[in-house]
Write a protein that binds this DNA or RNA. Sequence first.
DNA 1: ACAAAAGTGTTTAGATTACACCCATGA
DNA 2: TCATGGGTGTAATCTAAACACTTTTGT
Lengths: 226, 226
Amino acid sequence: MELYVNHPKHYVAVDCVIFGYQDDQLKLLLYPRGFEPSKGNWSLPGGFIQNDESSDEAAARILKQTTGLEEIFMEQVQVFSKPDRDPEARVISLAYYALIRIDLYDEEILKKTGAEWYPINNLPTLLFDHKDMVDKALSRLQQKAGYSLIGSELLPEMFTLIQLRKVYDAIFMREFDPGNFRKKILSLGVLERLDLKNASESKKGAFYYKVKNNVDETGKDRIVKL
Amino acid sequence: MELYVNHPKHYVAVDCVIFGYQDDQLKLLLYPRGFEPSKGNWSLPGGFIQNDESSDEAAARILKQTTGLEEIFMEQVQVFSKPDRDPEARVISLAYYALIRIDLYDEEILKKTGAEWYPINNLPTLLFDHKDMVDKALSRLQQKAGYSLIGSELLPEMFTLIQLRKVYDAIFMREFDPGNFRKKILSLGVLERLDLKNASESKKGAFYYKVKNNVDETGKDRIVKL
DNA sequence: ACAAAAGTGTTTAGATTACACCCATGA
DNA sequence: TCATGGGTGTAATCTAAACACTTTTGT
């Protein structure tokens, strides 16, 4: 049919805000841009949506290519579409964010591509409107983390409540009260305590927990008052 | 530069979930689809993003075309991009939602196009994935209305607290306690009471209120516990 | 024994909820 | 005056926040 034929087509890109957690800090995976325009700026990993894939699939593909990881939590942020946002061509871009475990990240890729993990509080100048994408992605992450334990995606399968609290400290850029945080999280009923302690970070040792299977964490109680 | 040239281009559409409020109900503006495929289904008003406009501008343009209204509250919902969502061609669609006053809506347009206002609880079969768009838009609206007085966009500039409560009843599909709702809303400090009463809906008459100018309503207190 | 981190308990302030009650007015 | 919605007040409950206290263990 000829219905659509009078309308323009556009390049549609996906850019990924990839969050990791290391050294008590929330970090972002960035790539050096090796060509003009804007050579020298850092950029979010991205790519173009192909004919046979949805945007979710494109985002997963790009994440796989840039980190080696699959089956990762990802979520749409929003579309960035100012006609001149990329001076080279009209590109409509859809931002995603992902939460990954830096300890699973393939170090080889870092070396090959020159990618780096930057602390969220100390980012270099970013390409185009990528800083806006990061800001929006962070506020989405905060929102989501406010009513689910999504922050645990940044940690290994087993983690202590202290580790989890520090992740939340990093995500919300504030310090949660240890006692209150523990009580609040446990009251959600989505964590399972293991018969195993982490002895490496203290003398007494802290119990490991893991997220219960088959638990729909969202829609339950609020973790952080927003 | 030839960097992008190997990648496919796509039609990018904007579809608008247009909410209105009438007869104590939340309603949706729908268009009859007059041609195949899916002739007879109802559809959200939509259009294609042009070369010189952002998606926000496209959404505003489409809203203007279909309702005659300008400067309306609109917000991105999300992208729908399954490769086969439109059987006719690969179309990536970005859903928006808007809140308009039905009383300002141009009746002429209804007659010309066959458009109709449908109660949100009693929708006909919708085109493609438009039902998903509506569901997602509604939950975004609820979320936003949960921490701002955005619901007042559905009412005239002056409204009584009873009218506002009924709008919130419709948005959240539950009944708020009259006394508690009133206290909560007033405690936000974003409404200004006028020296004017609405005598048409009761003997005693209820004071009109309006949203204060220059007040950033968001980020304040929560209205509805989610 | 004691320092240091893990974990528990207590107290207070504030918010939410349910619901009783008073007020103003037209018929 | 009385029925009807508009508007206020209050007690019971729940939650968040601050912070003191107890437990465990390596040195």
